[in-house]
Simulated assay, not measured.
Amino acid sequence: MSSNGTVSRRQKPPQVVAELGRPETPDETAARKAENSRKYRANKTINNLWLSLIVCVAVVIVIVLLVPRDNTSHLPPVDYRSIASSAQAAFPVPVASPDLPSTWSANAAEIRSSTGATAAATVPYWYIGLVTPSNAYIGLEQAVTTPTNGGTDAWLAEQLHDTAATDTVTIDGVQWTVYDNRQTPNDVGNASYALSTQSGATTYVLLGTATTEEFTQVAESITPNIQSQPATAVVGQ
């Protein structure tokens, strides 16, 4: 108590800073507060950046999920039956022209040739790119063994990306070898699923991304062609 009868408050001594071993000076206090404020703003900026990034990623995911994707073929349809009829004169065996409903279409039909070690080893083959009612793909390939190319074994391995047979199946009286690569992690191109068979001088391959039922439908549609193949190809026919 002071001499005039009033109670005086004892001033609290400055707090000792452990790192300094003494109280902070006013300048040190101001500097510390300024540094803490800077760190707070920096952390706030980083947090805002992360939040913005998360929001952007979420928006992209929503767009990808909601925007419809067009899986249709962008190649114009072709009349493979008419092309097959015209191609017959240049092909040494009867050309396969599957009899399929109007819900099927084709985006390519042509005679192709593999690249052999020599010109004589080249394997000619007829190709149709079929689009199924479910908008999947089946490639129909019909290769020919000629007196000079040594057979279609190498060609077949190339078309099937050297994959191994997994089964056999009889479709409409014709035995087909099955190559089911739907579960493989390897890159097999269009040979996710394939069927192959031989008749006379001709080797057939069906390959693509369609359902097993759609493959069966194509195989059934070319049974008459398979059964009509000659034992040997007449080159120059």
Rank of each mutant, 00 (worst) to 15 (best):
A194M: 00
T211R: 09
I128D: 05
P76M: 08
A157L: 15
A109G: 10
G21S: 01
P76V: 04
A34V: 08
Q237S: 15
T152P: 02
S199E: 09
M1W: 13
A34G: 00
D162Y: 15
E24V: 06
A18S: 11
P13S: 10
Q217D: 01
A42Q: 08
T152V: 07
A58L: 14
N36W: 14
D27R: 06
L160S: 04
P224A: 13
Y137R: 01
E19W: 10
E110N: 15
Y40H: 14
V16G: 05
A87L: 15
L66Y: 11
E213A: 15
L156Y: 14
V64D: 12
E24N: 05
Q175L: 12
F215H: 03
V59G: 00
W50S: 08
I138C: 00
I46K: 02
A89D: 05
A58T: 06
P224Q: 09
A165C: 10
S3I: 14
R112L: 04
T209S: 04
E141A: 10
P77I: 04
V144T: 12
V131L: 13
Q183I: 02
V55E: 01
V62D: 07
T25G: 01
T197K: 05
P13E: 09
S102L: 08
F215G: 03
T72K: 10
Y80G: 04
H161A: 14
E35S: 11
T152I: 08
T168H: 12
L206Y: 05
S97V: 13
A109N: 04
Q198A: 15
E19H: 11
A84V: 11
D99I: 14
A34I: 07
Y127C: 01
A58Q: 04
K12F: 03
T122V: 14
A84N: 07
T29M: 10
W104T: 00
L51G: 05
A201H: 04
N135E: 13
H161Y: 15
S192P: 03
P94S: 04
T163H: 10
V188T: 05
P224D: 09
V57P: 03
P76Y: 02
F91P: 05
L130E: 02
K12A: 05
T145P: 06
G21E: 01
T223D: 02
R10F: 11
V7A: 15
D180S: 09
G139C: 03
P124I: 03
H161W: 13
T29C: 02
V60P: 00
P230M: 08
T45Y: 00
A165N: 12
D172H: 09
V64E: 12
F91M: 09
A96Y: 09
E220H: 05
A164P: 07
D180Y: 09
L20E: 07
I46E: 10
T6C: 07
I226F: 15
E158R: 15
A154I: 12
A164M: 06
P185C: 05
V131Y: 04
Q175C: 11
V16T: 01
I111Q: 04
A106V: 00
